[in-house]
Nucleic acid binder design. Structure first.
Lengths: 215, 215, 215, 215
DNA sequence: CATGAATGAGTCTTCATTCAT
DNA sequence: CATGAATGAAGACTCATTCAT
């Protein structure tokens, strides 16, 4: 009951940082660890060690391990959306589609561990749909969806096409094409894969005889 | 399930079983537990309890927990392939495609926990490709792939189509369409979903003006 | 309360206060927190937050958590003794006894958390008797004891009565009657309880046939 | 995710015990540790060490620390009730009352740490009333209560006496008289204390001029 | 004087795996 | 063969207290 604690002995030299900064550092460290060992073996200790910080401090910023990892993903998604690419300047349905598919693939390519974490752990959570991460994810897939919608609106794709389904098709293919990579079984070529997916979708959906013939 | 039965319980009567039989019983028990609690909470104790067997005996048959779970998946895949459906009797590219998509969906629908386990844990393993499970998985997706190949061969689909990519498209869409279900967020309609996926693929790929117009 | 405020919050403006004032403010805050969450969950952070002060400053005034809590109790006791009631004006053994029992009960009623803290934590300390708190407690129970002593002196209670024992009887009964309340299991009526205890004691102790018959 | 664990190295010689036996041993060890260090500093490790057992095994028998300690108390209460004393053979209200008070005091005297634990921690629990321990406690205080009730029924105590209140008086006094001891501040004499309490109660309650005059 | 970031020693708890009987 | 008691290595999380700024 008496909760008095004995004082500390020697201690490593303490480095003080403004909270904002520390917060981001922990986030970065967690991301790095996640990248290196994968989420299955990520330990809070490792994250702390990474920033040369005590475990307790990590908990000061992030209440639980799950929360930390979720924040890592959110930060990554925020980053992705921030660097929102120059889609505005790309013209033509095929090119626009190709652009966003390529963009999505390069995101995966850049962070396989995070992708894998989201694909396996986060997405499997029962409350996934109610989290900010889900919303962010929507925003990302939404970029692709809106390109598809434009294609329908412009009459390039059949008017009766279910855009949601088409979007799932794109991302499903994207996932399948990258799983080997996510598993660490070798690389994939962003350009080539993007070209492949785009072509199939485009050829499949495009109306009229004017279908662009692709490589 | 996880009710750690206090060790004060009466000793269960020893039942001797032929090895083959016991092996299968354990497999069945593990599968049942996996189905009920999900792999995150599956404990070896629970599996043992399920067949009214000691933990030690489980280890006599399966060296580790991971191994056991892998065998469970293999057994499931074997079963799926055994019950190989009457695809032979279905005629017409569209119908054949619809048939195998529907079949795949019903497999997922019947065993969400196993599907989820494979999609998240097994598939993420770095040595996935070298395992029998990978091979079995290929055989399953191969059923779909061969239907697609036939369509190309028959000239129903464009000759320049990448069948592997198309297969990934199908399974990717399938996964995306079922994740909510796998997460436990509600059901999906096998027929409707199969129809949707098939239609998009078929419409997208079919050559000539003779494209079947679908509901 | 325990909402560990994330360290990202804006820095609070520094307010300088005369030491005496700050000391009392911290005491008041600790008392408030104790009242709200109970001692098991009282955290130094919460106390600091309460007076919009840093943890470090709390430690400038009180060396340890235990010390702080002890001071809180002392301050409370001081307060109780200060507000020493108009016992002087009450006449008659029964009435005087009733008066002090009622007074004691209302003290408990007003501060269940503090009472509970003293009854459980403080009183259990091995060095309790050597603390000022013990002395203060004596002074409080002493008020009752002196009323009892007067009764003996006045011949209203038997001359051979052990006043200390009687005092323990009174406070023991008081404690037992209030535990449910202290545990948070519902209220008790100060008047009724006081009447009950007083009556039993009085009837039990009063000499002669002239015993007051009570409600 | 992969949950395979590496095998153990050297290990201390394992001692196997029938569960019933082990269960009791842990209970006894916990009780001993409680006695020695007090509940505030009782650690599961210590309990395990005491029986030369791993911590994990303790958890096999008792799901949590709180549960273990509660079982310790229950076992103690069971024991107390089992050794139910020869009250049946004692005659006369005063003697019977003295007998049970003495019995209660010797229980406290024998296990100060447990008494203290119950008085402080257990009793303060909000769900105390719904636990078996509460029921057992009732049974114990009930022994005293029934002696008091008999006294009322026999006309030895006034018919208008509130037996529940009287019981609280007895136990309250008992608690107050023993707190110093529980705190470890010195011993108390069971006989003398029992005599004192009994006398006050008896003298206070007994009807008629025939009141037994006591030492 | 004030701040609050930083520390780190605990504690509890879980469970795959082993091995004495 | 069978049992299930026993192990022990992790790992998550808490919070009183310190001290650089």
């Amino acid at each position: 009951m008496s909760t008095v604690r004995s004082p500390r002995m020697a201690r490593r030299p303490v480095t003080r940082l403004p909270p904002e900064r520390r917060h981001d550092e922990i986030l970065a460290a967690a991301r790095a660890v996640l990248r290196e060992v994968g989420y299955e073996r990520l330990k809070m200790t490792d994250v702390a060690e990474r920033c040369r910080i005590s475990e307790g401090l990590v908990y000061r910023y992030f209440p639980t391990k799950d929360d930390l990892l979720e924040r890592v993903c959110e930060a990554w998604f925020d980053e992705i959306l921030e660097v929102e690419p120059g889609i505005a300047e790309v013209k033509g349905t095929y090119e626009r589609l190709h652009y966003v598919v390529r963009w999505s693939l390069s995101v995966v390519r850049a962070e396989p561990a995070l992708t894998r974490y989201i694909l396996t752990v986060m997405r499997a959570r029962t409350d996934f749909r109610s989290r900010r991460l889900f919303e962010l994810n929507r925003r990302i897939t939404g970029v692709v969806a809106s390109v598809l919608q434009e294609a329908v609106d412009a009459g390039d794709f059949g008017a009766d096409i279910d855009v949601r389904l088409l979007r799932d098709l794109v991302f499903g293919a994207l996932e399948h094409q990258t799983w080997a990579y996510l598993r660490g079984e070798g690389d994939f070529d962003v350009d080539e894969t993007a070209r492949g997916i785009t072509t199939v979708i485009y050829r499949g959906m495009a109306t009229g005889p004017a279908r662009r013939s692709c490589s």
